[in-house]
């Protein structure tokens, strides 16, 4: 296993209740895992905890990456080890996009990718995410994540709020990451992106801070689309 989460309990700073309540998850090298669940179930919290965002406090459990516990590592140390994240709604950064692209390639000693492949050439001279459309944000965030050449890519709803053309480009980005040998944990709300992806290893459903279902993707998706998440809340599913 390249990545493992064991009995993870997480609180957000300043709040008493747990957001994640005993999450268990393992991802093998080159595997693609999809995480679905209703709003507020803790999907984004899980990704942000994995990258080490300071407001998410691990109270119990551990996160292992390449056999090493990373609970106490700084975000930049985790990134250096090979964990990359594409945020769901990245904030505006008052820095020219091109400048940040240069900094990331320098930092990770990677090669620049053609902007055209992600249709972001017209954006690189602007401040990052300053007035970008939904699709522009997702494509740029995907591009920046790929630039890091991550061993584990965490993709937070890359398919929400984007047009069909952007969706195809983003899917191509994911395929590229897979070809490069990365493992992927992909959060999706409605599952649009799955139509574009050939290989998904497993689909997980998260309800109320816990992964309640892990199984073969087509079957799971079918259950979600037919019954909605309420099916999983009632405890009608078993681990597949």
């Amino acid at each position: 296993m390249i990545f493992e989460i064991k009995d993870l309990w997480v609180k957000v700073q300043g709040h008493d209740e747990f957001i994640l309540k005993g999450v268990e998850l393992s991802i093998g090298r080159g595997e693609v895992h999809v995480l679905m669940g209703p709003n507020g179930s803790g999907k984004s919290t899980l990704l942000k905890t994995i990258v080490g965002m300071p407001q998410y406090k691990i109270v119990r459990g551990s996160i292992l990456f390449m056999g090493k516990e990373i609970n106490d590592l700084q975000p930049y140390e985790r990134a250096k080890m090979g964990i990359g994240i594409a945020f769901q709604s990245p904030p505006r950064i008052r820095v020219k996009t091109k400048y940040l692209v240069e900094l990331i390639t320098t930092k990770f000693k990677t090669r620049l990718l053609p902007y055209e492949e992600y249709n972001i050439g017209h954006l690189v001279n602007r401040d990052l995410y300053d007035g970008f459309s939904g699709g522009e944000k997702k494509r740029t965030e995907m591009y920046l994540t790929i630039l890091q050449r991550p061993k584990l890519a965490l993709l937070d709803e890359p398919d929400s709020g984007v047009d069909v053309d952007s969706l195809a480009l983003i899917a191509r980005g994911i395929e590229y990451l897979i070809e490069e040998g990365a493992s992927i944990l992909l959060v999706t709300h409605l599952g649009y992106i799955l139509r574009y992806l050939d290989v998904v290893t497993k689909l997980h459903v998260m309800i109320n801070g816990k992964i309640v279902y892990s199984g073969e993707p087509e079957k799971a998706l079918d259950l979600i689309l037919t019954h909605g998440y309420s099916y999983f809340m009632k405890g009608g599913a078993s681990y597949g």
Binding site: K80, R94, Q148
Partner: peptide, 21 residues
Amino acid sequence: NYLMAKGFTEEEAVSIIVRGF
């Protein structure tokens, strides 16, 4: 936080934001 998740130390992140400013 965004920049730190992208692999920059806090010091580097501050410097990047200042440079942009």
